[in-house]
Amino acid sequence: MKRIFKLYGTFVAQHCKRLMEYRIDFLTGAFSFLINQVINILFISIIFSQIPDLQGWNYQQIIFIYGFSLLPKGLDHFCTDNLWKVSYFIVRRGDFDKYLTRPINPLLHVIIEDFQFDALGEFIVGIYLVTSASIKLGLSFGVVDILFLIVAVIFGALIFTSIKIAFAALALWIKRSGSILHMFYMSSDFARYPVTIYNNVIKTIITYIIPFAFTAFYPANYFLTGANPLFNIGGVVVISVILLGISICIWNKGLGAYESAGS
């Protein structure tokens, strides 16, 4: 364990050097993220300029859910961004072999090799939106609530990580799975709206199959209404642990099936 932390430190240092080399790249990336957030908020504002509430949810509540959704997403984005590269091109170019030849668990190696500072933008915007919406709604957070918040963010991030591991592992069979991962990842956007607006098929899909509703709406629902902590917070933990288990199984099967795509 100590060795892994030491390795992580080395990787972080390496990464910082690369970041300095391409700092304009980093700044433009962060800036474009901000533009996207502004567009999304603008979209919500335009909708609410025409209607008083969205099936019982008011503007500030929707903003709270939106802001909350950025926290687990940002945490995962910060830590496990390299999985994207596996699914888009590391396997296809035959570069995956290097992970198999090093004396460290390949999955762990992939994850600690890279991290994304851009994700801090997600985090900051998320915290800002959650705080401002909480103040306007007059929400009060006790010690238990803050503990629940931290748990929900960490385990919510694990749901993202698990989905990414599972679909990155798909590349070990089909060489390139980036687009499929992208599509599943993007579907997390739908968890930013109250699941009550969807029909049962979609509700079931985003609750149990690709359970992004647990990364945003369900925990946010608890903080907004205090309803059903067992399901809204406990569910995040249970679902994320199950999902992580499944993902690691898929990854390991993928390693077994992997044939190098050498060129």
């Binding site: 433009t28 990336g29 800036f31 993220f33």
Partner: peptide, 9 residues
């Protein structure tokens, strides 16, 4: 990379 993100947004 960064400019591609910016263009996309």
């Amino acid at each position: 990379w960064g400019f591609n993100m910016l263009k996309g947004a």
